[in-house]
Write a protein that binds this DNA or RNA. Sequence first.
DNA 1: GTGAAAGCGCTAACAT
DNA 2: ATGTTAGCGCTTTCAC
Lengths: 331, 331
Amino acid sequence: MATIRDVSKLAGVSVATVSRVINKKGYVSKETEESIINAMEMLNYTPNDVARRLAGKKSNTIGLIIPDILNPFFPEVARAAEDTANKLGFNLILCNSDDDREKENQYYEMLINKQVDGIIIASYTATPTDLISLMNKNIPVIALDREYKGFDIPFIKTDDQLGGELATNHLVECGCKNIAHITGPLYIDSFKERLDGFENILKKNDLYNPQLIRVDELSLVGGYEATKKLLEDGKEIDGIFAGNDILAIGCYKALNDLGYNLYDDIKLIGYDGLEANVDYLEISSISQPTYDLGKYAVDLLVKEIREEKDISKEKIKLDLKIKKRKSTLGK
Amino acid sequence: MATIRDVSKLAGVSVATVSRVINKKGYVSKETEESIINAMEMLNYTPNDVARRLAGKKSNTIGLIIPDILNPFFPEVARAAEDTANKLGFNLILCNSDDDREKENQYYEMLINKQVDGIIIASYTATPTDLISLMNKNIPVIALDREYKGFDIPFIKTDDQLGGELATNHLVECGCKNIAHITGPLYIDSFKERLDGFENILKKNDLYNPQLIRVDELSLVGGYEATKKLLEDGKEIDGIFAGNDILAIGCYKALNDLGYNLYDDIKLIGYDGLEANVDYLEISSISQPTYDLGKYAVDLLVKEIREEKDISKEKIKLDLKIKKRKSTLGK
DNA sequence: GTGAAAGCGCTAACAT
DNA sequence: ATGTTAGCGCTTTCAC
């Protein structure tokens, strides 16, 4: 691999001058610039990131921590983040923490050690202090899909409470009277907030019945079991709001197995809007701008890194859309 | 952040000695070692990877290139790879190439530039030469889920032709006489080989009918459309082998929509064994050891990096399992 | 056993 | 406008 020294020799200048053209910084005459660029091309030279970083420059790398790569929501976010990072000349290191705070902390260390310029964190388990101690080390941080209330941690997410309200309201408008909610662990803020929205609307409509709320494991099986239990208890139910699409699909399957007339006997709405997974089953859903979430997170972080903008006070909530399909509208 | 110099001062030794204990290399007395370790702990010292790498050591980082993070097969592989890498003290940089050779080449450059110690490549589009030129740069490479026939490129995959045979054979055994195959782009070797297996078995049983083979886009929609077209053509079909589970699910949906009696009129078997996505629909499938694929790829690569083993001739095919479910066994 | 010092490839004062 | 040089934090010869 060619070094900056090789280039400087070939171009007959000093390394400093070469460095100047690499970084487009400081004065250098048109001619020398050209001959340097020429030399770089001849040698097929690319500056060594490691050396660069050691010499105090940015590494043009950001880290993205996600809690669960098996949840299709996150690959979608990751893909968007990667696309965007690449477009901006950044590399992305993707870390899957398995929703394990220990592992997450290891990742912080390794990312710092790898000298990333900033970190995007989607975590259910991180505490505000975790992030703040990162920020104190002068490494820009942005929280994704989660808000740390009461702390000055920039975040980007959607309005989950509003989403819960939208979903529930739609079921009410479809004429449902006994509406159940199947959701994931409530330590995950998004689920808690969707639940809040659910309760708000039902109370407002005098339809609230806490018996019809079930928390289960965040998986197809969880959704399946929760639905089965609800219905086997003999509860009268004509609508279900599932806290996310994975749960909704489990739910769909349970309804099927129990002999319910899909799309009619019991209306169903999910949450996430992961097209591929829900569209083909025609399950209504609250659709999050998943791609945008990843995209804007990177955009913002890069702005902070490049010091084009102070994002420390940025608190962004993106819009939600409701996708009405057969599972609530009927066949 | 504490540096090696801080540690050496606190311990009252030279940086060289500290370096020796960091790398467990060269002689250093028990006592000084202890006092150094002590100092490191007091200062909460971790060696700086960037500096280390620049000074000529390994970076303890490997790159994983995958073609499509939205295909659930790859997140599963990625997760395994990451787990394993972490256990071995390595970091994983995950790159999603979107099945785009251009992007892939960019990733090679960036990974080299980031000084990764090795690369795992799952690509449909890479040419043997691409990988060989990487290997010539002295960076260990291992191909995942693809074999570069006629080249000495180590790989780890499953036996797709055998898988195709297993699947088809099962349908034959279930009494199917008119068996269709719905598959993805044949430039993807795995699909080509599964098709080969399919044809082998049918020819052997005198059931081969090339009319019943459909290639479509690798997506739910692709599977859906392919199935619809096959059946709307009025073809008599009593069994379908879908080249992967995503196609199988699209297929399932189409059968449903067209009013076929699932699990009975037409038997269906998929491929991949992505539990979550196929299990709940009770679709039979050829199950690949997805996790192991990622795990062993990293294991092997790390062995090569640590020079514990020469893997250049490693060509590994992992075992497949058939999962028989209601979609072929009947209700 | 331990230390001094050169060097990995690059950046950024400071000179010129 | 360009060159000289001192680091960045670490590893590694080569002395002692």
